[in-house]
Nucleic acid binder design. Structure first.
Lengths: 203, 203
DNA sequence: GCCGCCATTGGACCAAAGGCCAATAGGCGC
DNA sequence: GCGCCTATTGGCCTTTGGTCCAATGGCGGC
């Protein structure tokens, strides 16, 4: 179901620049979709495959930072690379803190831009890998998993869900099997890492 | 043992600016130590109490970013707030990515500066809280803890350390008791969250 | 209607983790 | 030397976690 080619979503209100970016990215072997505004991007159906966002900072109506904030708020974020027309330090700081992969200034060097996009795609690939491990779980299994990584014991989970401890054990076993986690510690890290869209490294 | 007053370490080669910063911070109720160069700061004995770093970006010999890189490399980093003389986007991006709390531009607004320092101190407080929970552990206990959070079973840990499973159990129990973690999941998060040194004997 | 997936539970059983009590031995400070 | 801490191990017993086999009932799709 995931297309082989990663898609770069370019959002920039400058038509000529956006087309130039699209050309560059297509030449680099990526699929590209361009949008002239944040609204246009938001209107697009959710995308679940490999890809990233290349976002202009200054745009009418909804600017890049606000779009980022909204996407982060809704979780489901593609990694974002910002392109800024002017040197705006506070904006760059905020963007990175919110999890942006990079923050480039126009005119951007092609190599730097492709490097940033590459990094964003790599991050997305990791995201998808983690998600894939959780995707196979049924709703109930996910529920049990959540309580397990909270540190509750089978008995407590059973009580909380109103089922038998035996049932919890079965779900729990399935969670371990489907996610491929070979220990509780591994599961905790897997879930903790993919739970929500959070900034990288130490925040 | 931790001093009540957090200490802000100000590193800036501009003497008059540094003094002004020191005055401002002292007025805000912080202890302050000023340094005219990265080397001077590095020469100071390691500080383990509450505090943070207020770092100038542009300095002769070793600039702010390089100092940050060195400190991060050695772990044991106080949260850092950068002060930059000029608008340098790539530097700000790199600094934040490396974990800086904030990146302000000169001339910095007093309120913004104090807010950033406050955030840095808050982060430090969290760091210390996590460290305190691990500080009470003996070397052996820490060693066992590391293997535990890696998902190894008591038997495997025993084999790896060349001791009996029974011994591992005792250490493990002590780890849980001393850290206050009430479940393995909690311990995993505690250790994973507190990026600390490596285990003495393993990997 | 039959098949497959999911949630649920039972029983038997084994392995792992944890608690309790007790003991030996080396190192360190007073 | 004496006390205190740490590391080590033993045994015993309970609780938990995990596996295997087996079965029932609901739901959606073909």
């Amino acid at each position: 179901m995931p297309e082989a080619k990663p898609t770069v979503f370019v959002v920039d209100d400058d038509d000529s620049l956006r087309r130039a970016l699209e050309r560059l990215l297509r030449a680099a072997g990526y699929a590209v979709e361009g949008f002239a505004s944040a609204q246009a991007y938001l209107a697009r159906a959710r995308y679940h495959g490999p890809g990233c966002l290349l976002l202009d900072l200054a745009m009418p109506e909804i600017d890049g930072l606000e779009l980022q904030a909204r996407l982060v708020h809704d979780a489901e974020v593609l990694p974002i690379v910002f392109l800024s027309g002017q040197a705006d330090i506070p904006a760059s700081v905020r963007a990175i803190k919110l999890g942006a992969v990079d923050f480039l200034t126009k005119p951007a060097d092609d190599d730097a831009l492709l490097a940033a996009v590459g990094a964003a795609l790599a991050r997305r690939a990791e995201q998808l890998q983690g998600q894939a491990r959780l995707a196979a779980l049924s709703a109930r299994e996910r529920e049990v998993m959540y309580l397990v990584v909270q540190g509750l014991r089978n008995k407590q989970i059973a009580a909380q869900l109103g089922v038998t401890e035996k049932t919890v054990k079965v779900h729990r076993a399935r969670v371990m099997e489907k996610t491929g986690a070979r220990s509780l510690a591994e599961l905790v890290r897997l879930v903790g890492g993919e739970g929500m869209g959070r900034p990288p490294g130490a925040v």
